[in-house]
Design a protein around this nucleic acid. Structure first.
Lengths: 152, 152
DNA sequence: CATTATGTGGGGGAAAGTGGGGAATTGTGG
DNA sequence: CCACAATTCCCCACTTTCCCCCACATAATG
């Protein structure tokens, strides 16, 4: 049901990216290969099955229009949300603008994250990963309530 | 159903702008190509399908006339609202006054925002985007309740 | 080792985006 | 009311991008 795990992925000169085989069947069931890609504040890309994205989008649209934070999120997330269909070879074409945003060169990494997938530039991912390993240990102050009680 | 995603757009010397192909069919269904363009506080332009605009306009008109903010909004939004039809090539002609308002030069950006579209000058958009990305990270205090619990 | 599944790359046709000439329409001033 | 100017709109031509298709390379399977 959920996406998990990591895949090394090549992005070719045209900006295409093959969807790993293990996701294909499921993606066709869930959404007929219709995906939505958008940006994340950590400079990676988020990939949702279309129906899953629409739930999130609806929540965002319902937010009060005059609120500054709300508009900011709407513009970043909805503004960059691009609907992509998988082609006959089960690839998706990442728009140039989104590739630039995530600093995607030739080598990328696809990360399963539950209801969504994340695409990272390989180097960026490696850096961040090291960074997080340190942060998680030290900083356990100021967590939201739900996190304080989390048992993993 | 909703508008989303980003398009690079050229505004030609006459002030015309091609509507991206993926929106055309839908726009003709919804409103027969009849659009309303107006201004936004953030110096971009807002584009609504006519019926959608009429809902917004009604809400604005119903606001209390003695409230300063309300009058201000009414004058800005209703005052600048211009009805535009798409031409035979699916382009719209942006009035000079609105182009100036948004600082639109040759290169612009069209952003899907749910029920409406936004038109930005390319440079302005890039600046704002960077600004927002920083804001999102640092400032997560003082969010409306609906935002605190948002899971994306 | 043969055979199938999976990833990767590129050529070419179709569609979308862009720009400019000129006709038709509108508005303005005499 | 007419002449002139400005604007708007339609048409055509060019350029760029996208997407379908085929081909091969690499890895997994029996």
């Amino acid at each position: 049901m959920h996406f998990r795990g990591i895949n090394n992925i090549a992005v070719d000169a045209k900006g295409r990216m093959a969807m790993p085989a293990r996701y294909r069947e499921r993606l066709f069931e869930i959404c007929g290969g219709r995906l939505v890609v958008t940006v994340d504040r950590d400079h990676c890309l988020l990939v949702y099955p279309l129906p899953e994205w629409e739930i999130i989008e609806s929540k965002l649209i319902e937010l009060p229009s005059l609120n500054k934070q709300a508009r900011l999120l709407q513009r970043l997330l909805i503004g960059h949300a691009t609907e992509l269909d998988m082609d006959a070879q089960d690839r998706i074409l990442l728009p140039a603008m989104l590739r630039e945003f995530a600093g995607l060169a030739k080598k990328a990494v696809l990360i399963g994250q539950g209801k969504k997938l994340e695409i990272w530039d390989e180097d960026t991912w490696a850096e961040k990963k090291d960074e997080w390993l340190e942060t998680v240990e030290s900083d356990s102050g100021g967590l939201p309530a739900a996190l304080e009680e989390l048992s993993i």
